[in-house]
Amino acid sequence: MIAVFGLILLTGCGRADLSALRPQGPAAETSYGLMKLSITIMVIVLLIVFSIAAFVMIRFRRKPGQSEIPEQVEGSIKLEILWTVIPLILVVVLAVPTVKAVFAAGNDHWNDKNAIKVKVTGHQYWWEFEYPDYGITTAQDLVIPKGKDIAFELKTADVIHSFWVPSLSGKLDTNPAGTINRFSFSAPNEGVYRGKCAELCGPSHGLMEFKVKSVSEEAFQKWVDGMKKPAAVLLEDPALAKTFKDQCLKCHAVGDQGISVGPNLTGIGSREAIAGILINDDSGVEGASVEENLKTWLHDPKSVKPNNLMPSPKDLGLTDEEIDGIAHYLANYKLN
């Protein structure tokens, strides 16, 4: 046990962009505060129980030759009251801040003029983020201005998912119409935070990740403007452009073209990951380059995310060269 505990201390408390133990925003701070309070109370309880247990198990072992009958104690009302009242007090100590925080978390900022509204839709197995005030829709990377309250409205397009960014906030389920949820959080610092789906939603549940990018106010505005701009030249090769338009844009959108059945691809080259799970990292430590990831994905989407709904481009009749060409185009389709 001690060895195991030591190992855990060595590994630290997890990544700053992922761990609930290293909160990066007020909502996660609240949860963390309650965790610390409850862990403190519980460690005290455990120490008391463990000490009494160790004491009685050592002190009252039956000794060889011991044969007299121990006194048959019926009980003790004083002790019973003691270990009823003290736990009750501990429960109250934990319950009061809990109830306070529950009601604080119920404040969703949806009608707050200063808040940025985002409609989150869970799909098997990707995330759609719509900014109703700006008229833009994106996928997988949620871009937010730092320090601002972000008001979320959560729903699902299919099964129940759960929207979770551990370092910024606790999770909330995306339910079907009729039970739509609202909540809010904010990220005071710039940075990229990892988000996950936390409710079993099918085979690729474990791969349904997303990123939250907290950026400066100006960068956010620039990003919004970039998203609103019509898509640049699609692809230079007209034949490939036609293939892209006929095949890919039947489900996806870039800028003002195509439709949003699948994830919106506007500016996909500047995203943190492809399909939410293939992490873009030119250094090769966490993943591969954007283009490599796009190729991996487009050559066989089902092998990256089992049971996802995207048809394999090969099945749609695209050649390897066409796929690589589209990957190259998308990788360089960045918002500047």
Binding site: L34, L46, V91, T98, G170, K171, L172
Partner: peptide, 21 residues
């Protein structure tokens, strides 16, 4: 007892937003 105390921790809803699932 260890399972019991984590149960009490889970009972605190705002902390459970992190623990859940």
């Amino acid at each position: 007892t260890m399972g019991g105390v984590t149960g009490v921790m889970l009972a605190s809803a705002p902390a459970d937003f992190q623990f859940h699932d």
